[in-house]
Design a binder for these strands. Structure first.
Length: 472
RNA sequence: CGGGGAGUAGCGCAGUGGUAGCGCACCUGCUUUGGGAGCAGGAGGUCGCGGGUUCAAGUCCCGUCUCCCCGACCA
């Protein structure tokens, strides 16, 4: 019996309970006093900051600039786009009083910022020389949730939202897809080690106000899907009501074509559920606040000195390193702590190791330990971190393939969705098929080409497949 | 909105009218420390709130508030 079994509910017993246990025991987050709100604890926030930095770098590489727009939005702004307000009104938080008086016009707490950003775009954009305009903001948003779950669905969450304006439909289309692949898909694979599917949402699943929604869908440890990021083509749906026009090269006035796209703290939940095991979190090295923990086995001055020297050279090599010298806490307790927290690599060092000029190297994603000489430790650990990323990704990919089943009918798709994804001809979910799926608790996650690539606009539905699953 | 549960120590819970408890966590000391250590001592409570019955209420009655689950609504 592994000690961790006494700490966490095994995943097979009760996956949601396991998830809650990990979030609590790894000290990632806890519930806030208002239902649906979340306190993100320092360790959880450190993961988010690392992820944020990766996304931010890629967003800026697209040519986008960060800005900040207000939390409060005039209610009238939301009403300007019919589908948009209809989609969001059930989950709006509305402020009716301020300064001790009832407001003449209520303000809503942003559920997303299309409207208020576009009110600025209308002023900022005059000429085709102002285009394309690529703006991103990091912010909190509020969507009143009835069934909240930490990180996955909270009433208030943190995210980035990109908003762009272009001279042509084709340009907006291309940008929405570049964001999906160059920002989101790439971050998920090469930072989060999660092999997501990409595709187009059905009309029923599309963002309120968008003409097309593109999505990244990940498979969690229980076979359910998680929508991990979306990128929308807005057409001219907002340009018209907000009057965002520009003079083109010929001097003619035209409405801009737009996109918007976002990824949130939900990704942290996805990270937990995609890689975690019965011993806790397993963090991909690029998102691990502590990549290497140097664990002092016994309270011994010589051991402690060596541990610190080792940590210092690991740190100098650019690895996020922490010495655990809490020798007033038992060794076993500290090992379990770091396993729950998902630190990718442990280096254990005690008097016996010191005598041999070595440390004991343990990787979180595999069984077994091996000695490593102190001289070689930095190089070995550095290589091992890359290898851990690769094997987490490979394992997740293997599981996704294994739990994805090709089927032909809605009934078979529902059955297959009990333990993973089902792929069936897109024609089958056209019209009534999607309703039947939804009635069974299964949803269309995305539409793809048969080879898994993104559909093009001209693709006939007969050439596409639908990926369906139960989802968070 | 309908139905069903639950509010007792930081967390999880027991307590069927008679001194408010247990596990974990916390504090102190000693012994420990290579996979959640042991022993001893200690601190911590308006039992959700208000009223009532009773010699006596965490427990029974009435009211009220909050939270959770299922359904409905919504998507």
């Amino acid at each position: 019996m592994t000690p961790a079994a006494a700490v966490l509910t095994p995943r097979a017993d009760d996956f949601p309970r396991w998830y809650q246990d990990v979030v609590a025991k790894a000290q990632l987050a806890e519930n806030g006093p208002v239902r649906g709100t979340m306190v993100i604890r320092p360790y959880g926030y450190a993961i988010w900051e690392l992820l944020q930095a990766e996304l931010d770098r890629r967003i800026k590489a697209l040519g986008a600039h960060n800005a900040y727009f207000p939390l409060f939005i005039p209610e009238s702004y939301l009403r300007r786009e019919a589908e948009h307000v209809e989609g969001f009104s059930p989950e709006l938080a509305v402020v009716t009083h301020g300064g001790g008086k009832e407001l003449e016009e209520p303000v809503v707490v942003r559920p997303t910022s299309e409207t208020i950003v576009n009110a600025s775009f209308a002023r900022w954009i005059q000429s085709h020389r102002d285009l394309p305009m690529l703006i991103n903001q990091w912010a909190n948003v509020v969507r009143w949730e009835l069934r909240p779950r930490l990180f996955l669905r909270t009433t208030e969450f943190l995210w980035q939202e990109g908003h762009t304006a272009h001279a042509t439909d084709a340009e907006a289309h291309e940008l929405a897809r570049r964001v999906l692949e160059e920002v989101y898909l790439d971050t998920m694979r090469s930072v989060m080690a999660i092999p997501v599917l990409t595709g187009r949402k059905t009309d029923g699943e599309r963002f309120a106000g968008a003409t097309t929604t593109w999505t990244c869908e990940g498979m969690m440890g229980d076979g359910k899907a998680l929508q991990m990021a979306t990128s929308h083509e807005l057409g001219q749906n907002f340009a018209r009501p907000f009057d965002i026009t520009f003079s083109d090269e010929t001097g003619a006035s035209a409405f801009v074509w737009q996109t918007s796209w976002g990824a949130s703290t939900r990704l942290v939940g996805g990270l937990i559920m995609a890689h975690g095991d019965d011993r806790g979190l397993r963090l991909p090295p690029r998102l691990a606040p502590v990549q290497v923990v140097v664990l002092v086995a016994r309270a011994d001055p010589a051991v402690l000195a060596e541990a610190r020297r080792l940590a210092s050279s690991l740190g100098a090599a650019g690895l996020r390193t922490q010495v655990d010298d809490r020798t007033d806490v038992s060794f076993g307790r500290r090992v379990v702590d770091w396993e729950i927290k998902g630190a990718p690599v442990r280096l254990e060092i005690g008097p016996r190791d010191l005598a041999e000029g070595q440390a004991v190297l343990v990787r979180r994603d595999a069984e077994g330990k091996e000695p490593v000489s102190l001289d070689a430790a930095v190089g070995t650990v550095t290589r091992m971190l890359d290898d851990i990323h690769a094997s987490l990704l490979a394992a997740a990919d293997r599981r996704r393939r294994h739990d994805t089943h090709e089927v032909d009918t809605i009934a078979d798709a529902v059955e297959a969705s009990a333990g993973g994804f089902a792929v069936l001809p897109a024609l089958a979910v056209d019209g009534g098929g999607e309703r039947d799926l939804n009635a069974a608790g299964v949803s269309v996650r995305c539409l793809q080409r048969r080879d898994g690539s993104l559909p093009e606009r001209g693709d006939p539905v007969t050439e596409l497949v639908a990926v369906v699953a139960r989802a968070y």
